[in-house]
């Protein structure tokens, strides 16, 4: 499977994602410079974390106009797997690939911590190696991770089962008491209706190796590989 990691000026988790795909999963991976206007033959695209364009004006607002973005949008619309992590999620929101917007954390402070995530469903290309209801311990690090959308959108997200991860406590309760940033409905990650675009604030690439204290995150990338292999298998049959 071939991954592409888009590098915007100011991306800073690009190398981390690249490392997990190449050295942990041992799959193929390339960096894609944001000034490119076409995507090569990739099976999945990662929009990594960081501070694209310094997060100036609004997070993701300037990156969304990078030359590469029309190609990424096109790739997503054709069913390609796209995962946006942290700043990548913010860019997906600004680009309109996912609904909603990001506000500053309720504390008005940057938060670096480890959060418990509750997996809401496992019938997606990003969670097929996880169990529904399973808890994951995943690092978070953001200043603007307070996901917001209006009531109607939230209703729609719920109706379509688009909420993939919620923040919870160690016992799996995802109530507002266990919400690190004020995110509406404790949302930590959502997918689009079609299920091929995921945006999440927590960093799965930071918990994909034992030496970093946990491996819960690697399952998300492994799920993507698995799902890709199944598609190939189906095509062959």
């Amino acid at each position: 499977m071939r991954f592409g990691v888009v590098v915007f000026p100011g991306s800073n988790c690009d190398a981390d994602c690249y490392h997990v795909i190449k050295d942990v999963l041992q799959e193929e991976v390339d960096y894609i410079w944001h000034k490119e206007s076409q995507l090569g033959a990739y099976d999945a695209i990662i929009l990594p974390g960081g501070f694209s364009y310094g997060d100036y004006l609004r997070t993701g607002a300037i990156a969304r106009f990078s030359p590469i973005m029309p190609a990424v949008i096109d790739f997503a619309n054709r069913g390609g797997l796209v995962i946006g992590i942290c700043n990548g999620f913010q860019i997906l929101l600004e680009a309109g690939l996912l609904p909603g917007a990001m506000l500053r954390n309720q504390s008005l402070k940057f938060i670096c911590d480890t959060a418990y995530l509750k997996v809401k469903r496992n019938d997606t290309p990003f969670t097929n190696q996880l169990a529904a209801g399973q808890l994951m311990k995943v690092p978070i690090a953001h200043g603007e991770g307070n996901y917001y959308c209006d009531e109607a959108t939230l209703e729609e997200l719920r109706r379509n089962n688009q909420i993939l991860f919620t923040y919870s406590n160690a016992a799996g309760e995802d109530s507002p008491d266990f919400n690190p940033n004020g995110s509406i409905a404790n949302i930590a990650g959502i997918i689009n209706k079609e299920g091929n675009v995921l945006g999440m604030m927590p960093h799965p690439e930071r918990c994909s190796e034992e030496v970093l204290g946990g491996t819960d995150g690697v399952n998300i990338f492994v799920s993507m590989v698995k799902s890709f292999q199944e598609v190939i298998q189906r095509c062959k049959n």
Partner: peptide, 28 residues
């Protein structure tokens, strides 16, 4: 203090702030 610092970016931090007498980073 340290929860306002991103102490894990670059995915090397093996002993994070507050957990040991010194920070430990792996060399990839």
């Amino acid at each position: 203090v340290y929860s306002q610092y991103d102490y894990q970016v670059m995915t090397n931090t093996s002993i994070i702030p507050g957990n040991g007498d010194a920070a430990v980073l792996r060399i990839k």
